[in-house]
Lab assay of single mutants.
Amino acid sequence: MSSSSWLLLSLVAVTAAQSTIEEQAKTFLDKFNHEAEDLFYQSSLASWNYNTNITEENVQNMNNAGDKWSAFLKEQSTLAQMYPLQEIQNLTVKLQLQALQQNGSSVLSEDKSKRLNTILNTMSTIYSTGKVCNPDNPQECLLLEPGLNEIMANSLDYNERLWAWESWRSEVGKQLRPLYEEYVVLKNEMARANHYEDYGDYWRGDYEVNGVDGYDYSRGQLIEDVEHTFEEIKPLYEHLHAYVRAKLMNAYPSYISPIGCLPAHLLGDMWGRFWTNLYSLTVPFGQKPNIDVTDAMVDQAWDAQRIFKEAEKFFVSVGLPNMTQGFWENSMLTDPGNVQKAVCHPTAWDLGKGDFRILMCTKVTMDDFLTAHHEMGHIQYDMAYAAQPFLLRNGANEGFHEAVGEIMSLSAATPKHLKSIGLLSPDFQEDNETEINFLLKQALTIVGTLPFTYMLEKWRWMVFKGEIPKDQWMKKWWEMKREIVGVVEPVPHDETYCDPASLFHVSNDYSF
């Protein structure tokens, strides 16, 4: 037999072997998808029940369902290793196997995995149920939502704001400190077992692309791009910072340095994350009609249902689908009040099986009107990829998912749209002054938050990498806050605090 014939037969044999492996992989994935749908849905439903009704029974049910899901994933991840990716030609099959071969938290021992889940659930519970009591009246206690958040959004009393700011960190942050220390250790162990340098590197892996249509993007490039983007917006932020400082000097004349940092408790919310609520103090042309339409919403008797129905109309107007019937029947759109304790931070849920929901303790404000559009943007994205195989139902990356939500809320905030839905009067006219007011309001929300987020994530990356010793977490946190964000702590904090974890995203294990 000629050498060319042998070569042809060899190629046929290799192709047949690849085809056999690929067919086996497809069969394996079909079985996995069928089983995963049910187990993931049960786990998601148990998590939803806990988040909307925080009880010991629900946390136990959530843990049990989560353990079943984790055990299943660990088993299936091991089985998926049997299919070598280099022998799979079908890109859809390869991407699913690649996702499943990534072990995630299931790489930890059973004891450590359970401990990590306990830590995460405990931190979430402390954050959502933590109360601050009035020292003069111990029976008068406030949760973060709505009590403390209400103070931080609306109060102009310097000392009341300081009390709310400090009490939240003292009551909740200190409880979270030992848990967060354990969390860092276990998450790093999980990341390294998955061949990442640390948990920050694991997060950045979400943005990594290897040879898809000839395109590559590394975790290191992400760090470079983040640094570059921050340097680009820094001059604009510094101008905004100086303008806000001048306006705060008028409101709090004896508390603000004309050349120094801004006190952290005066920036519009509990964390200084969004400066939106400073608009009334900083509006350049106050004689113009108010483009913050909160009062109009209240006057027109809007409620949470109306807010979300208007958001749905907005999405339908640009060619996107209505929310499902189940969305309206199962979402929690208002604070249950004293009936039950719930996690009030707005979140969009894709539970699986076409079950999409939003959890939000909606208030009738323009801020929540825009947040509703943001969260519904997440749901629209979830619905758009719902037909994909189970392992591919995700956003391109976390940042893109947020961008989908944010672009919709930005569009909904324009005076033209607000006028079209009757929240600005029919005779409202846009001119240079109203446009400047609008742009300032947008800058308070968007530009003001960028250094906050950059600095927070930089601190977390450094902590996970071990570049900040545990006994210097708070020292470095406030050094970076002053240097990068231009914000100063109103009272000193020692290493018993854990100020970063006083933010939902940190205590609940979300990256930005």
Rank of each mutant, 00 (worst) to 15 (best):
H34P: 15
L95R: 13
Q98L: 13
L29T: 01
A71G: 12
I21W: 01
Y41T: 01
M62E: 02
Q98V: 14
N49E: 14
I21V: 14
F72A: 04
E57K: 06
A71M: 07
E75R: 15
E23R: 12
P84N: 03
F28G: 00
N63P: 00
N64F: 11
N49H: 05
V59N: 12
E37W: 01
K68P: 01
E23H: 12
E22M: 04
K68M: 04
S19W: 14
Q60S: 07
W69C: 15
N61Y: 11
E56P: 12
L95S: 07
A71P: 01
F40H: 08
E75M: 14
A46Q: 03
N64C: 11
E23L: 12
T27L: 15
Q98I: 13
Q24I: 00
Y83M: 06
Q76N: 02
Q89Y: 13
A25T: 15
E22Q: 13
N63Y: 08
Q42K: 15
Q24Y: 00
D67C: 11
F72M: 06
L73S: 06
N51M: 06
S19D: 03
N63W: 11
T27E: 01
Q76I: 15
T20R: 07
N49D: 15
L39S: 11
L39V: 14
Q42V: 15
L29F: 15
P84R: 05
Q89A: 14
L95V: 08
Q102S: 09
I21H: 03
L95G: 09
Y41G: 00
F40Q: 13
D30A: 02
A65D: 04
N61G: 12
E23W: 12
L79M: 14
A65M: 11
A46D: 05
L95N: 11
V93S: 05
F40P: 02
E37D: 02
L73N: 10
N90H: 15
Q102V: 11
E35K: 03
D30E: 15
W48M: 00
D38I: 01
N49Y: 06
Q60G: 10
N90I: 15
N49Q: 06
I54H: 04
K26V: 15
Q60L: 13
I21Y: 04
P84D: 11
Y50L: 03
Q24T: 15
Q42A: 02
P84I: 01
A46P: 01
L73I: 09
S19Q: 03
A25P: 01
E75S: 15
Q98P: 01
W69H: 03
L45A: 01
H34G: 05
Q89P: 15
E75N: 14
K74A: 10
D30S: 01
Y83I: 06
D67Y: 13
A46H: 08
E35T: 00
S19K: 06
Q42P: 01
N64L: 08
Q76Y: 15
Y41W: 00
D67R: 13
E37A: 03
Y41M: 02
T20V: 05
T27Q: 05
D30V: 14
N90R: 15
L91P: 15
P84V: 02
E23Q: 14
I54N: 05
E22L: 08
K26T: 14
Q102K: 09
D67P: 02
N49A: 14
N64V: 11
Q102E: 12
L79R: 14
L95Q: 09
L45D: 02
P84A: 08
N64H: 12
T92Q: 15
E37L: 04
Q89M: 08
N63S: 05
K74Q: 09
L73Y: 04
L95D: 14
K68C: 07
Q24D: 00
F40D: 15
L91D: 13
Q76E: 11
L29W: 02
L73F: 07
Q60Y: 12
Q102A: 11
Y41S: 02
L91G: 14
E37M: 03
S19L: 06
S19E: 03
Y83V: 14
S19H: 08
I54G: 08
E56D: 08
H34E: 03
E23M: 14
Y50N: 02
I54R: 05
K68L: 04
Q76K: 14
E23A: 09
K68F: 04
T27P: 13
H34Q: 02
N63V: 12
E56C: 06
D38K: 01
N51I: 06
N33S: 14
K31P: 00
L39M: 13
E56Y: 08
N61E: 13
T92L: 15
W48N: 00
L39T: 12
L45E: 00
D38A: 01
F72Q: 01
E75T: 15
Q76H: 09
E35F: 01
N63D: 12
V93K: 04
H34V: 15
P84C: 04
M82N: 10
Q89K: 14
Y41L: 03
Y83H: 05
L73E: 08
Q42C: 15
A65F: 10
V59H: 11
D67K: 12
N49C: 02
N61L: 13
K31L: 06
F40R: 15
N33Y: 03
E22W: 02
E56R: 07
F72I: 04
D38C: 00
L79G: 05
A46G: 04
E35Y: 02
M82P: 03
Q76P: 03
